[in-house]
């Protein structure tokens, strides 16, 4: 992982995985396959995080998104009998408009990136144990946002439970 050559190869492979599986998520007819490719896509993103030396982020990505969120999504698909064996249509009449605007956005973004002369790079090396640094920062400097996010998640969870329970008692 230390030399740039193998990092380059790994980056191309991971990017291909992320892009192709991301495309399959929004184009396949079988919703279970879509969920599986979403997992592959998120795993590929975790791989790119590792290339950027953000190991903690990569592990959290796999643990939370692949391990918990996607598994719950598959669970929901399995429990919803209407979805289970049906071929779904992922596009509607706005498909063409959406495609054109997306292409326009990508072209614009690439043009902007090409125009930027100076990119900001981190000048100093990453601390050897950046997981510890993240932990300390979350508990000191970013304490408030961290707690707000926790409260938000709990509120969302309670909201979901209230919705799912319906009207009775």
């Amino acid at each position: 992982m230390s030399d740039p050559g193998s990092v380059g190869i790994a980056f191309w492979i991971l990017s291909a995985i992320v892009l192709i599986s991301g495309l399959l998520v929004v184009s396949l007819k079988n919703i279970f396959h879509c969920a599986l490719f979403l997992m592959l896509c998120l795993t590929g993103v975790a791989g790119i995080f590792i290339l950027l030396h953000a190991e903690f982020l990569a592990a959290a990505q796999v643990l939370v998104y692949v391990g918990a969120v996607s598994v719950l999504m598959i669970f929901a698909v399995m429990l919803t009998s209407n979805l289970a064996r049906k071929k779904i249509v992922q596009t509607n009449q706005n498909a063409l408009v959406a495609f054109v605007s997306c292409v326009a956005f990508v072209v614009g973004a690439l043009w902007l990136i090409k125009g930027t002369e100076v990119w900001k790079f981190a000048t100093e090396a990453l601390p050897a144990n950046n997981t510890m640094t993240i932990g300390k920062l979350l508990m000191t400097e970013f304490m408030l946002p961290f707690e707000v996010v926790s409260v938000l998640l709990v509120a969302a969870m309670i909201g979901a439970i209230v919705l799912a329970r319906g009207e009775e008692a």
């Binding site: 190991e55 990569a58 643990l63 692949v66 598994v71 997981t131």
Partner: peptide, 18 residues
């Protein structure tokens, strides 16, 4: 010897569930 060692183990074992 990854710096996230045990967290890595927890992360990859979730693929078994899938």
């Amino acid at each position: 010897d990854l710096s996230i060692g045990i967290l890595y183990v927890l992360a990859v074992t979730t693929f078994t569930v899938i």
